[in-house]
Design a protein around this nucleic acid. Structure first.
Lengths: 143, 143
DNA sequence: GGGCTATACTTGACTACGCAAGGAACTATA
DNA sequence: TATAGTTCCTTGCGTAGTCAAGTATAGCCC
């Protein structure tokens, strides 16, 4: 586990700037990001939980906040009354677009400062084997 | 950041067993472990904070718990009245020794299942470059 | 010695998140 | 078609950990 400790500091560093400049936590940001990349800009709560590595209740509360700010809206599912979709609103998209450049730059700096492209590839592949790791998706902007 | 998500699930998996069998969180365990490897079995709070990647207040509260359970005790510093050392008690050592085998086995399984020895070395080296990462210390039992 | 800044630690208020339990709605089985 | 089991989601409660502020000590420099 010691080996995984760097993570905490890394997240905190990124989170601080994101929060100071845009009032978003990392999970807020990544939630918006997942939605932006999803079909119809919407995802079921379960899928968000999976993508963000949160429990169902964690997602409920995360979305509570984002809905309250108008960045995300609810939508019913036609074929299954149990599910409610989270949908990115226009405001959510604007927020994401406003926050992304600085955040991405910071993430980018954080990693390229420390790793070559090749090393980054190796690291991503290795970490993707951990349980619950996001599959490495070259389409998303965060490494 | 997506790349670092696997961490959470990994920690949770390990934490669950540790908590169920020995009433310890991962941080409890690693705190005891750090103390066990430290000179005189004692460390300043600041150094624990560094090693566990917690803030000073986080450490205060973590130790509150461990002291309450008698696993760790306080000790004054002769030369600097500001610092209080955390010292591993006999009971703390027993607890650690009781919890270690199963936990280590689980950690070991979790990693050797997924990585060869060589890959593990690469992974450790790469992760050690992250800010706040524990320096890779072959003396400790956790990777 | 008297002030200044830095360091070690604690405390209060707050937040994010997990877990356990529960309510709907869907699916399969009889 | 009734029943049982499963899945999706929410809610109450508890906990770990942060941040900001405060206290106490150390070490400077005049």
């Amino acid at each position: 586990m010691r080996l995984l400790r760097g993570n905490a500091a890394t997240r905190r560093a990124l989170s601080a700037q994101l929060h100071a400049e845009h009032e978003l936590t990392i999970n807020d940001f990544e939630c918006l990001l997942l939605l932006a990349h999803a079909e119809e800009n919407s995802l079921r709560r379960v899928d968000l939980a999976e993508g963000l590595q949160l429990t169902a209740s964690g997602v409920t509360r995360l979305l509570d906040g984002l809905e309250h700010c108008g960045l995300v809206a609810k939508a019913k599912c036609d074929t299954d009354a149990r599910v409610t979709y989270a949908v990115l609103t226009d405001e959510g998209r604007r927020k994401l677009e406003a926050a992304a450049p600085a955040h991405m730059a910071q993430v980018h700096a954080l990693f390229t400062e420390r790793y070559t492209a090749e090393e980054l590839g190796v690291l991503a592949e290795l970490l993707s084997r951990l349980p619950g790791a996001a599959t490495v998706d070259q389409g998303t902007c965060t490494p």
